[in-house]
Design a protein around this nucleic acid. Structure first.
Length: 426
RNA sequence: GGAGAGGUGGCCGAGUCGGCUGAAGGCGCUCGCCUGCUAAGCGAGUGAGUGGGGAAACCUGCUCCGAGGGUUCGAAUCCCUCCCUCUCCGCCA
């Protein structure tokens, strides 16, 4: 049986959990949890008593048989007991599955440093970096630039597949690939991450481990006739690398960097960001994933954020960092920083990275533990992840921030070696 | 896709005609002894989950031998379904 929040924690902190649900604008009644949990414990006491009786008596029967004695009386008695056990076991299983379904719907507890708030307008900006480029002309949105330069073909993307799919060509395709390589090289070469290339299709258990299922099934592409799904982010396969494993304390923290495409249905965002690359059903991302000991996971979150920020600094892209408030925090996260990059073509800051500490929420579901140095019981690790960064949106930011009056786009210096020396796309 | 073999504790590896095996034996690891140091040697300990008792050391119930069902008083051991691994054949980037 998997849980997200510890059922014991819920049991002992019902008021706190209910307060958390309100802060997250979630309507969920814990009365049923209280009732089922109580019932389950009562049943368990009874059925375990009976099992104990059966075990003891089975030994007795075995002994009698060995000594050629008569055990028919005990066998008859145990037949009754076994019937009863079977019945009670079924009742427990029924309650368990209802309880699990319920607990799976409860989001994570926010960290104490998460500000209260109703939604994204209440997220405090904790940092801004870089100079917004001064332009003596009216900056264009990236879709215009991309089409005029012949590097982004939205129409043909839509023809090949449908809306929210894009065909990159020439320098556009290469720029996308350059960004992937640049980011991976930076994180593996300078930030201590190990590169992994995971499967892009995962099974149900894996999706459940990181919290995408059962709650967010609507946003996932599922393969027909199979219990397999296209990943919506590398977080899913990479976090599940250690699913059902026990790590040694000296192995922590573990840092992974992974490039993968990401597939999202974007259900419920029909009117939003219909133009351009901002919201696609398929996009590329370099993801950073960490497994850390609980006592320093928040330091690891700060480092993770700094690693993601470094990408934007080297690319010379202005950004701000916001601390997501309680009402905007994702389902599985205890704390999340969003990095938002400046897009002059649209005159807004747009999310380009999301760095989160999930504490033991995912680890509990995916059953990822470690053995503490000082010995004693195994504990759940803390998992963290962050985009480092979303590739498509980075390309958008480059086009819009580095555009020239004539519609050409200068390539940031750090990318030129990856572009075969190309300095300007024109 | 076809034929066969197999999935046991951190690892390797026993489990007889179903009962005394949560699991022999070995390796590894931990602690202690021994040793000038190292190696070797000797002794003890060493799975996980969940519940009860105790201030604690610790004692104790239940569950777990790929997963899920079934047979049985009782299953790692028998039956069924599924998953995975390996070998051979076919097909294929």
């Amino acid at each position: 049986m998997f849980f997200m929040l510890d059922p014991k924690f819920i049991r002992n902190n019902l008021e706190a959990v209910e307060a958390m649900l309100r802060a997250r604008n979630t309507s969920l009644d814990l009365e049923e949890f209280r009732r089922l949990d109580q019932q389950r414990r009562e049943l368990l006491t009874r059925v375990e008593g009976l099992k104990n009786q059966r075990n003891t008596c089975s030994d007795e029967i075995a002994r009698l048989k060995r000594e050629k004695g008569d055990a028919s009386q005990q066998i008859a008695a145990m037949r009754q007991v076994s019937q009863e056990i079977k019945k009670l076991d079924a009742e427990v299983a029924e309650i368990d599955s209802r309880l699990t379904a319920l607990i799976y719907m409860i989001p994570n507890m926010p960290h104490e440093s998460v500000p209260p708030g109703a939604g994204e307008d209440d997220n405090p900006v904790v940092k801004t970096w870089g100079e917004r480029p001064a332009m003596a002309f009216t900056p264009k949105p990236h879709w215009e630039l991309g089409e005029q330069l012949g590097i982004l073909d939205f129409e043909r993307g839509a023809k090949i597949t449908g809306a929210r799919f894009t065909l990159y060509r020439g320098a556009g395709a290469r720029l996308e690939r350059a960004l992937i390589n640049f980011m991976l090289d930076l994180h593996t070469g300078e930030h201590g991450y190990t590169e992994v290339l995971p499967p892009f299709i995962v099974n149900r258990t894996t999706m459940t481990g990181t919290g995408q299922l059962p709650k967010f099934a609507d946003d996932l592409f599922k393969l027909e006739g199979l219990d397999y799904y296209l990943i919506p982010t590398a977080e899913v396969p990479v976090t599940n690398i250690y699913q059902n494993e026990i790590l040694e304390a000296h192995e922590l923290p573990v840092y992974f960097a992974a490039y993968t495409p990401c597939f999202r249905k974007e259900a419920g965002s029909y009117g939003k960001d219909t133009r351009g690359l901002i919201r696609q059903h398929q996009f590329n991302k370099v993801e950073l994933v960490k497994f850390a000991a609980p006592d320093n996971s928040y330091e690891e979150l700060e480092k993770l954020l700094a690693n993601a920020e470094e990408v934007l600094r080297r690319l010379g892209l202005p950004y701000q960092v916001v601390n997501l408030c309680s009402g905007d925090l994702g389902f599985s996260a205890s704390k999340t920083y969003d990095i938002e990059v400046w897009l002059p073509g649209q005159g807004v800051y747009r999310e380009i990275s999301s760095c989160s500490n999930f504490e033991d929420f995912q680890a509990r579901r995916a059953n990822i533990r470690y053995r503490p140095k000082e010995g004693g019981k195994t504990r759940y690790v803390h998992t963290l992840n962050g985009s480092g960064l979303a590739i498509g949106r980075t390309l958008v930011a480059i086009l819009e921030n580095y555009q020239q009056a004539d519609g050409s786009v200068v390539i940031p210096e750090v990318l030129r070696p990856y572009m075969g020396g190309l300095e300007v796309i024109s």
